[in-house]
């Protein structure tokens, strides 16, 4: 085992894969800047594999697609997730669709890295969680690792995958340290992790909601309440079986998701459990999400938005009471539903 930060895990994954495979290249604005996980890469891999990028998200995303269809494996780093909107046409209309449109003649093996810089007082154009929008686009695999070990193992798997993978990094987790297995550590895409076992309530948590949910589980364990925390890790394809298995055991489900409420990952997870796991449920499902408003600049307002331990805790309490839908929604956070 080695101990490293989430950020260093991302850096290690890219380094290991670039050393392993000369087809891996990095497209990143300011890749040589000291804050970037790619800082120093050009010295080892040269300017062809770490080219200097103009501020041209649409252009270099298109170039990555052309490169991927002709034998390379680009890692495209948008540095801030909102910037991927600038490249939306290339991402949605081309990276996701080209293989299908061309009848399987080609594949588009690109990893799109997107650091989600919310809860950081940067206001709505630098604070976002775009994964639900892309979950609605067939052809993209989507991962949201929450630990350094998964950050490393999923990024390595994503780089080796022959399909486009969008890799969302909650920036607030970058500094978090954890143990990472030695050697060639790969985490399979499409497999959830049981972050903590429990028998009373299932909390499916995404991204930085995972550590928040673990905090709640730790607290409630002192009262004899065993919370099972499931980290899907991959949102497309979603490991529905792991979630259904957990709900079959606990009979209660809370979904904690820092993205917006409407048509979000939490909505999809809730719908699947309602459709396929209805007989297991002993209480209504409760979602703990961000409300459908933009992240405001003022930290005083923004901190109300996301699934804090307090909001997750309230939701767990509510499902344990088998409360009605209205009561559970109210308990899950007074902002919900506005």
């Amino acid at each position: 085992m080695r101990t490293m930060s989430y950020r260093d895990a991302i850096r290690a994954a890219m380094l290991e894969e670039m050393r392993r495979d000369p087809a891996v290249v990095v497209f990143c604005e300011d890749a040589r800047f000291w804050t970037m996980p790619t800082n120093g890469f050009v010295d080892e891999f040269g300017p062809d594999r770490v080219p200097i990028m103009p501020i041209s998200e649409e252009g270099f995303t298109g170039a990555a697609i052309g490169a991927a269809m002709t034998g390379l494996r680009p890692i495209v780093d948008y540095t801030i997730s909102n910037l991927m909107y600038v490249a939306w046409d290339q991402l949605v209309n081309h990276a996701a669709k080209n293989r299908y449109l061309f009848g399987g003649q080609t594949s588009v093996p690109i990893v799109f890295r997107a650091a989600m810089k919310y809860a950081n007082a940067t206001a709505a154009q630098h604070s976002d969680r775009p994964y639900p929008q892309l979950m609605n686009v067939p052809g993209l695999k989507i991962v949201v690792p929450s630990t350094p070990a998964d950050a490393l193992g999923l990024l390595k798997s994503a780089i080796r995958d022959d399909d486009p993978v969008v890799y969302f990094e909650p920036l607030m987790l970058w500094g978090r340290k954890g143990e990472v297995p030695d050697g060639d550590h790969l985490v399979p895409i499409g497999r959830a992790a049981v972050a903590r076992e429990g028998s009373d309530v299932t909390v499916v948590a995404i991204g930085d909601a995972v550590p928040a949910a673990l905090t709640v589980a730790e607290h409630l364990a002192g009262e004899g309440i065993e919370v099972e925390v499931i980290d899907p890790r991959t949102l497309v394809p979603l490991d529905t079986a792991a979630i259904l298995d957990s709900v079959a055991k606990t009979g209660r489900l809370v979904v904690a998701d820092p993205a917006h409420r409407t048509c979000g990952a939490a909505a999809e997870i809730s719908a699947r459990v309602a459709e396929e796991g209805f007989d297991s449920l002993r209480a209504p499902i409760v979602r703990v999400t961000a409300p459908d408003v933009h992240p405001p600049f003022s930290p005083v307002l923004e901190r109300l938005m996301y699934p804090t331990p307090e909001r997750i805790h309230a939701a767990v309490r509510a499902v344990l009471r088998n409360a009605s839908t209205a009561a559970t929604a109210a308990a899950a956070g007074e902002l919900i539903g506005r």
Binding site: G103, G104, P188, I189, G190, A241, K249, G251, R282
Partner: peptide, 25 residues
């Protein structure tokens, strides 16, 4: 359904899930 994925990922199998005793429904 063909040609979407170069590397399709098979869904993980369900464990032998037994509905919770005393489930409300």
């Amino acid at each position: 359904y063909e040609d979407l994925w170069a590397t399709p990922i098979e869904p993980s199998p369900r464990r032998d899930a037994v509905p919770v005793a005393g489930a409300a429904r």
